[in-house]
Design a binder for these strands. Structure first.
Lengths: 193, 193
DNA sequence: ACGGTAGGCCAACACCTGTTGACACACAAT
DNA sequence: ATTGTGTGTCAACAGGTGTTGGCCTACCGT
């Protein structure tokens, strides 16, 4: 819509677009998809609600843009096999605290089908791909990835969404000490007899 | 409001009250707090929306009544210490699949502060109490309960809310085989050196 | 200098929400 | 028969939602 032209040409509206996106992420993270209103997001970005529509088409479109996310998983093939679990927990903890996009996605996934689908895609594609880089049994890979996702998302859910006191207060290092071995077993271990 | 009288006297409206409550649980479980409308719940229960207000005061009041829940945790003191984890996973799986109240609560906890508080209460009070029945170190009890909650809620979130394919397809017995040892370690083990 | 266009605001639409009050019916006690 | 109360319906309110179209203004190429 916004003209062909050269794509390297910075538009004057890029700042507005970015402001909307940032405000959207904050609101979606704080309130979830349904309670985050376009009017509130526009107010945070100090522009008119109609601008949101012009730039992102609809609320769903805005969310889709705001929920773009890359887990940036490290290459597990170069990690010492005994440190896989610890590495993953540390990575997720820092990824989660540094970017509120994941919280927005997590909060919205409960009630918004599109957000749930996005979440499924991220944790299926990206995590499964990472697990399969060192995995031996391809049939087991999906299951291992699912188990890892369950513990990681449970950690995020109790720590950032529900805010269970014991999970909020605990130091990251201690979380790594407890949850690292769990992921390690999910990734490389076998189920109980 | 509804007269003093004898409390043992069954009211003619008890059936309606129950129908509203059941419809509310289904809607809250399927859609979450915000998207579940009083009109939809009333339609499911085949009554007028205003009846919901009369019997439960407000939407929040209705949710509070519909989200009443008891984990019915077994007495962990009588469970063989080596089977604590397995027992807990089995219990939660059956509790979760047999009663949609927990799903309603879980789905709503992401966006509704009241639901989050309720969830906090359940998993703090009930679970901590159960863990402390056999626990040795009282300072560690809350942390153990929190870790157990993180894995249990992560399991529920990926299996019933986000519906991650690997977690939906897996057999309950296999889930027990994988997750049981995790809870066992959270309950009775020590963190990694 | 000037005309076109991109960026932005305002006001309104159509719809849906929780909630309320007035009214109708049923049934039990008087 | 009449009263009274519990049970239920109907219609409406007031506010908030996503979304739309018209209008103004500033900038940029010519």
């Amino acid at each position: 819509m916004t003209a062909p032209a050269r794509s390297t040409q910075p538009r004057r509206s890029d700042a507005t677009r970015a402001a909307i996106l940032q405000a959207a992420r904050e609101r979606f993270a704080a309130d979830g998809y349904e309670r985050a209103t376009i009017r509130a997001i526009a107010a945070d970005a100090r522009i008119d609600p109609s601008m949101v529509m012009r730039y992102y088409g609809s609320k769903e479109g805005l969310f889709a843009a705001a929920a773009e996310f890359d887990l940036r998983l490290p290459d597990l093939a170069v990690v010492p096999p005994a440190q896989l679990g610890e590495t993953l927990v540390r990575h997720f903890l820092s990824r989660w605290e540094g970017d509120e996009t994941l919280v927005a996605l997590l909060r919205s996934a409960s009630t918004n089908p599109g957000a749930a689908e996005r979440m499924r895609g991220i944790f299926t594609d990206q995590l499964t791909a990472a697990v399969s880089t060192f995995g031996t049994d391809p049939a087991m890979t999906a299951r291992r990835a699912g188990l890892v996702a369950s513990q990681i998302l449970g950690l995020a859910f109790t720590r950032y969404i529900v805010r269970l006191p014991p999970m909020v207060d605990v130091e990251p290092d201690e979380l790594v000490a407890w949850i690292g071995p769990t992921l390690q077993r999910y990734l490389t271990g076998q189920p109980e007899a």
